[in-house]
Each structure stands twice: as C-alpha cells, then as structure tokens.
Amino acid sequence: MIGRRLLVLTLGLLALGFVHCEDAADGEIVDEGAPVTAPIDEEVGGIGPSSDAALSFLFTQPSSANVNRELVAGKLVKYLIGFQNRGEKDFIVKFSESSFRYHQDFNYHIQNFTLGQYNRRVAPKEEATLDYGLFVADQFAGRPLGLVVNVHYEDSEGRYFVSTVFNETVSVLEDDSGFNHETYFLYLVFAGLLAGAFFLGQHYLNKLTRKAGMTKKRSAPVETGTSGRSEVDFEWIPRDVIKASEKKSPKPVSPRQRKAQKAE
C-alpha cells in the first residue's frame, strides 16, 4: 500500500515537471544582457495613473533624442510634459521627478535630479504643458542609462496619482563639438602667461641697456666765448688786392720813433 502511494506521488511529480518544462519552452526567451525597460505608467509605490489623465513626453534639447534616444555628456537636456484632463474633475499637477537608473535593473538608482515643482491646476477638458531640464554629467559618457520621469498629481477629491511618462534606456555620448570650457580656460591662462613674460623680458632688456650706457644722453652745451680771430671772411677777396693794400698802408710808428724823427 505504501509502495503504491509512493509510485503515484512520483508519477505526479514527474508530470508536473514535464508540464513546467513545456510552459518554459513555450514562453519568451529572455536575454539577460539586454537592457531592461519597465512599462510606461507602472505603479510607483503602489500608486498608479488616473484613467482620466493622458500624459505625453517630448525632448526639446536635443530634439534628436526623440528618435535615437541619445544624450550628450556635459550638455543640458530639456523636455516637455503634456497633461490632458479627460475627466470631469480638476487635477492639480504637483511635481515631476527624474532619475538615472541602472539600465539592466531599473530599481537601482544612479542619480536623482531636483524635483520640477508645478502645482498647476488643470480643469476638465483642458491641457497643460510642463517643462523641465537636467544636466548630464561628463562621467556618464559612453554609458547606457535608464531615464525615468514620473509625474505626481491629484484630483479635486484628494486622490493621489503617479504617471510614468518616460521609462527607457538612453545612450550618453561624448561631446565632440570641439569646444570645451576647460580647454578654453587653459588657452586663456597660457596667453596671459605669455603676455606677462613678454613685458617682463622687455623691462629687463631696458634695464640692461641703461646699465651698459647704450641709451643716448643729450650733451650739455659748451660756451666757447669770443675768439681772437676776425669775423670777416677774406677768402672771397683776390690775393693781389690784399697785397696791394698792405703795401700802401703805412706801418705803425711808436711815439718815441716819432720824436726822434722830429729831432733830426
């Protein structure tokens, strides 16, 4: 009797294992290395979206991220959130929260960004556009990241809702625009150092030239006084005329010679 029960139990376990193997074979094959993306409008903390609210999401910077899901490291990312009230009660949009997640496990937070505060009332059958921006750090360049954006809101009766407007894997690319603020600052400092070295070198050379006596000094004027030479220029008078005038002019005679001549 006991042996018959053991046989039946063994056959039952084998049958259950066979059925489980068939179900696993018929199911989808999951690649553990593929990015994991959570569904849109998932429940956050047990709180889900409202059926009377329709939300949309759009990247504005860079706009190409709407197609290729690529962000640039070191750049600002901006996006718009559209909120449409399809119900009969007012909604008050409280805030939006954005975060980077590990791309293979969206439950693992890498970076949480500042909340986008709105506190905006949306009446029935009306729409509202909300904006937000976040900065992608350079350290994330070359990495895939999960970007999650949740919007928190409540209706006029105080019921609270959370809608996930974006929940996908994005690629962070390196900035290859050629302009880098750090490089520009280094070039500016280098140019300042060169200019300072030039002025210091010029000042040093001027000092050396002054010490070596290479700078010219003005000579002081020297008074020569009146010379004994005649100021009349006789070069233009012919020599014959000068000789003739010298013969005709009497030689000067002293007073003694004059007295002697008179006594004779």
Rank of each mutant, 00 (worst) to 15 (best):
V67P: 12
A15T: 11
N66E: 00
L58R: 08
P49N: 04
F57N: 03
S56Q: 03
D31T: 06
D90L: 02
G12V: 10
A34F: 06
L9R: 05
D23N: 11
A65V: 09
E88M: 01
G45E: 08
G3E: 15
V77S: 07
V8H: 10
A34K: 13
R4A: 12
E88L: 01
R86H: 13
D26K: 14
G74F: 00
F18G: 13
E70G: 02
F59S: 03
N85Q: 05
Q84T: 15
V93N: 12
A54S: 10
F83G: 05
D23P: 00
I40G: 10
I40M: 06
G74C: 01
L11Q: 07
A54R: 11
S64H: 04
L80Y: 10
A54V: 11
A25P: 08
S64L: 03
P49Q: 00
E28G: 02
G45D: 09
K89S: 10
D23Q: 13
A73F: 08
V19I: 15
D31H: 00
D41G: 00
I92E: 12
F91M: 12
L13M: 10
V44I: 15
A34P: 12
G46H: 08
D52R: 02
R5D: 14
H20E: 12
T37Q: 15
S50W: 10
S56T: 09
K75P: 13
D23A: 02
G82M: 02
L14R: 03
G17A: 04
S51Q: 09
K89Q: 06
S64T: 14
R5M: 14
V93I: 15
S56P: 04
